[in-house]
Design a protein around this nucleic acid. Structure first.
Lengths: 218, 218
DNA sequence: TATCTATCTTAACACTGTTCAGATTGAGCG
DNA sequence: CGCTCAATCTGAACAGTGTTAAGATAGATA
């Protein structure tokens, strides 16, 4: 019942507009992923429900199971794309600067900016209990994002591999912790653009404190 | 509802073993909080349900509402106690050392140690959406815990108040991010004691990298 | 054209948090 | 001592949730 008037007739299809009729949706996986990301963007990680995603995709609550197994499977796919987007943002930020220290600084800003602009997606990416934590592709995507830090940091420390790993862990921990605390409003409101800008300025100072611009340290 | 105090203390009797019969439980609030903490310890933050807490306390699912309003109210109380315990752990760690830098280092270790030993409680403390985020006592407890960092850091930087705040934000972000990432197994397994010990050694190196022991920086 | 098989629906189950009318009971007051 | 009363808790209901099994549908294949 109630097929929500979804462009049933594909008669004079000039450019193959939308093939989403009754039984065989055709692109249900992508549609469900997009719906999930929309929910995360609108309502945050806690607002996601599998049934709501199915509702937005125009299918029954049982439909997703055939493609993703369960809710964790769907969210895992969403998280993978999130990690890909994050890695891309980090890469772009670093490529805009010269010098290891400035690259790292820009990456730190980009990391938190990503978290503040896509809070639901970001929180879900790190909500292991809601994902298939041992999924190979997820682990790969997560490692790729973390790797973006290591490559830049390795230029910076110029020491042993272990030192580079320590420095990368330090950088990741700092920006991740700042992002998490900021999202919990520990540094002030972050809902509007002006609040976010102020928080980002605090982050800038934090990064300057931990990785000073000049060679001299405090 | 929400009439605290009372503390139905029936005096007399030398020993009062179990006053938890039928209708008037007598200590339901404390019992519910303890049950909730037990669930968090056993099953993590995602494993908590209000009904399970009521079940363990031996009351109906509707009973908690008379004391805490709703699940958020109960969890807020749990979070407050968590912040109190965390603040106490930070204070104890700092008091065992001398010198601002060593105090800060010890506090960082204590922070992550707390998170790794009480993962469910820790995650819940920072799950704003599941708490009454604007509860006055909660905000106060959270600020008190954060203040433990500021007091120690202010000795370290010896600059303006703004610089101290920046340094405190840096320290908190780093240890919080490390704790979060560690709990998501980004630094290796953390389920058994040996895994935790290894992760704590990584943290030790991270802290040494960001706040070196000697005056000379890298 | 007939069959096969992936895809999706329907219906059900066991949960969840929350609400509300009513049962119970300890405590204070006459 | 007995009564009333307000606080406390129960029982039942409601609207949700994720997941599963059995059946309907339709695109692809032979």
């Amino acid at each position: 019942m109630k097929k929500q008037a979804s462009s049933g007739k594909r008669s004079a299809g000039a450019t193959r507009p939308k093939p989403e009729p009754g039984y065989h949706h055709g692109e249900l996986q992508e549609t469900l992923i997009a719906a999930s990301e929309a929910i995360l963007a609108e309502q945050g990680a806690e607002g996601f429900t599998l049934r709501e995603a199915a509702r937005r995709a125009g299918v029954s609550p049982a439909a997703p199971s055939h493609h993703f197994g369960n809710a964790q499977g769907l969210l895992t796919e969403v998280a993978i794309r999130g990690y890909d987007a994050l890695a891309e943002a980090l890469r772009a930020a670093a490529s805009g600067k010269q010098g290891a220290r400035d690259k790292l600084h820009a990456q730190g800003l980009a990391y938190v900016d990503f978290a503040l602009r896509h809070p639901g997606r970001f929180q879900m990416m790190f909500a292991n209990k809601r994902l298939v934590a041992d999924d190979a592709r997820l682990k790969q995507a997560s490692r790729a994002a973390g790797h973006a830090f290591e490559t830049v940091v390795s230029e910076l420390v110029a020491g042993t591999a272990k030192e580079a790993k320590t420095a990368a862990a330090a950088a990741w921990s700092t920006v991740h912790g700042f992002a998490k605390l900021a999202l919990e409003e520990k540094f002030g409101s972050v809902r509007n653009e002006s609040g976010r800008r102020e928080v980002m300025m605090t982050l800038d100072q934090v990064l300057n404190y931990l990785w000073p611009a000049s060679a001299a340290r405090r």
